[in-house]
Structure formats: structure tokens, C-alpha cells
């Protein structure tokens, strides 16, 4: 347990520090955030053709309302928590890579739902938008990470069905 905690916290702090480096922000985080905005727009467009993506900004051309996807809103922090948890737990490299890839996908899938929901909530009611943006969605994203991690542990256990607990 102590070993897990040490590795978990170490990786968490390390990845957070790396994420904040200017070259990483410019080469990875900002293009990735722009991709999230473009993906969100691509999902919305068949239903609402007034939406446009401008870099990290999602804008409604008819109302002028826009949301900017900033640090803390791109799901990278949640993904870092998941990566730290997966890497800290003893498993084969193959299993870890599968878990990180699948987990990243599920976290980002929910994050896109979050971005789209916030885009429409903001146009409807700003107070509700703030509630969801600042308090509810961060919790739901962390719950998503927890669910993914719990499924990962169960899946790892099923890879070795002969072992039972005392």
C-alpha cells in the first residue's frame, strides 16, 4: 500500500509538472484542447449548424455565446490521475497500456459530453452553467475515473481466475 501511494503521488506530481511546461503546453496540451473543441463541434454540427470551433473556443454564430476550453477543462488532469493509479498498481506493461488507452478514451468521451452540455447550459442559464462547470462536472469526471479504475481492477483479476482471496 505504501509503495502504491509513493508511486501514485510521485507520478501524479511529476506528470502535473510536465503538463505545465511551456513546450509541452504548446506541442501537446493546446493542440489536444483544440482537437477536443473540433470534435465537440463535429458532434454538434449535424444537429445545430450554428456552431463553430475557433481553436479552443466553441462559439454559437447566432447568439454569439462562446465557451473556451481551458486548463482543467480538457480532461488531462483526470487522465493523469488515472495514469498514476494504473502505473502505480502492479500489472504487466501490456495490461497497463490497455488500461491507460481505454481509460483515456472513456474520460475524454465523458469530457466531450461535458463540453457540449456546458455549451448549451451556458446559453440557457448562466447560474446553472456555473454550477455544472465548477462543481458537478469535476465530480462526475472523477467518478468516471473511479469507475474505470474499479473496472480495470476487476478485469485484471479475471485475467487470473485461479487466485482466490484468503
Amino acid at each position: 500500500m505504501a509503495r502504491f501511494l509513493l508511486i501514485f503521488v510521485g507520478i501524479l506530481v511529476g506528470l502535473f509538472a510536465i503538463e505545465m511546461l511551456k513546450p509541452v503546453q504548446e506541442a501537446v496540451i493546446q493542440p489536444f484542447t483544440g482537437l477536443l473543441a473540433a470534435l465537440s463541434t463535429a458532434i454538434i454540427l449535424p444537429f445545430d449548424d450554428t456552431v463553430i470551433a475557433q481553436g479552443r473556443i466553441l462559439r454559437d454564430a447566432s447568439t454569439g455565446f462562446a465557451v473556451s476550453i481551458e486548463a482543467g477543462c480538457n480532461g488531462v488532469e483526470a487522465a493523469i490521475v488515472l495514469i498514476a493509479g494504473v502505473v502505480a498498481f502492479p500489472a504487466s506493461v501490456k495490461h497497463k497500456l490497455i488500461a491507460i488507452s481505454a481509460g483515456f478514451f472513456f474520460v475524454q468521451a465523458l469530457n466531450i459530453v461535458r463540453i457540449i452540455s456546458l455549451f448549451y447550459l451556458g446559453q440557457w442559464n448562466y447560474t446553472v452553467f456555473e454550477w455544472f462547470h465548477l462543481y458537478l462536472w469535476p465530480v462526475l469526471i472523477m467518478l468516471d475515473v473511479l469507475v474505470v479504475y474499479a473496472i480495470y481492477l476487476q478485469w485484471l483479476g479475471k485475467q487470473h481466475p485461479g487466485v482466490e482471496s484468503a
Binding site: 498498481f89 502492479p90 500489472a91 504487466s92 495490461h95 474499479a150 481492477l153 476487476q154 485484471l156 483479476g157 479475471k158 485475467q159 487470473h160 481466475p161 487466485v163 482466490e164 482471496s165
Partner: peptide, 13 residues
């Protein structure tokens, strides 16, 4: 229940 999952998963590693 979680400990069982963790033990089984750890045994795999």
C-alpha cells in the same frame, strides 16, 4: 470486495 479484486489483480502481476 475491493480487496478481493486487488488481491486477484496483484497475483496476476
Amino acid at each position: 470486495a475491493l480487496a478481493n479484486d486487488i488481491k486477484r489483480a496483484s497475483a496476476r502481476a
